[in-house]
Computed example of a mutant assay.
Amino acid sequence: MYNNIIFIGGVHGVGKGTICQKIKEKLDFTHLSASEVLKWDDFKNEKGDKRVENVSTTQQRLIENLKNIVNPQKKYLLDGHFCLLKKDNSIERVPLKVFQQINPLAVIIVKEKSEVIRERLQKRDGRTYNISQIETMQKEEIESAKDLCTHLKIQLFESSTENIHETIVFLQKQQFFTGS
């Protein structure tokens, strides 16, 4: 569907937004957050809960909203998730067909120490998070990203807020956007 999106994924609180902001400062990208594209605030409960009831329905809304946003003349960083936490606390991978429709040119998976993620989430949301759930979620995100990239035959770059410079260099070296 698209040919101008780099997908940046990772668990909540890992630093996707920070990395996207730093990339935007150096390179000509527009940053889109999947939550904003989804208009996620329409779905969250009063506690700010981001658990998902129906992954397929949510992701179809993402695809439909992207159609109204993405300009073929621009380059995008789309930050989102490879897995989502469901209302019953189970983890479900975002279906492959969603990524086939997004058609990312490459994937950047953002990783961080679980303790750092927990601190960020607690600071952001004002509540306590289970470290083992963060570890499990991050492991599943990474495995899902690897499987996705293998299936789509696209590059996977591992990033963190500690190696933003290397992430920028990775993007600069790519031939994704020739002629721009």
Rank of each mutant, 00 (worst) to 15 (best):
I102Y: 04
D41K: 13
L66P: 02
K75D: 00
I23V: 15
Q122N: 08
G17S: 14
Q175K: 14
G17A: 07
T30L: 09
F82H: 13
K75E: 04
L85H: 07
L66Q: 09
I109L: 12
S144P: 04
Q155W: 05
L148V: 05
L38P: 03
S114G: 04
V37T: 13
S144F: 04
I5M: 07
N65S: 10
G13V: 01
D147A: 13
K111F: 03
S144V: 06
I117L: 07
I142G: 00
D42H: 13
L62V: 06
Q138A: 01
S160L: 11
K67Q: 10
P72R: 03
S90C: 07
E166K: 08
Q138P: 02
D88S: 12
A145N: 10
H31C: 09
Q172C: 02
L62T: 02
I102R: 03
H151N: 09
I117Q: 04
S180M: 00
N71W: 02
I154L: 07
T136S: 13
T58W: 12
L85P: 01
I69H: 03
D79S: 06
S33V: 11
E166M: 03
I5Q: 01
Q73D: 15
I168G: 12
R51T: 12
K111M: 13
S56Q: 10
K67E: 10
K50G: 14
T58D: 14
K67M: 08
L148T: 07
R93I: 03
R61T: 13
H151K: 13
K139H: 13
K39A: 12
S56V: 08
L148W: 01
S90G: 07
I117N: 00
V70I: 15
F7E: 03
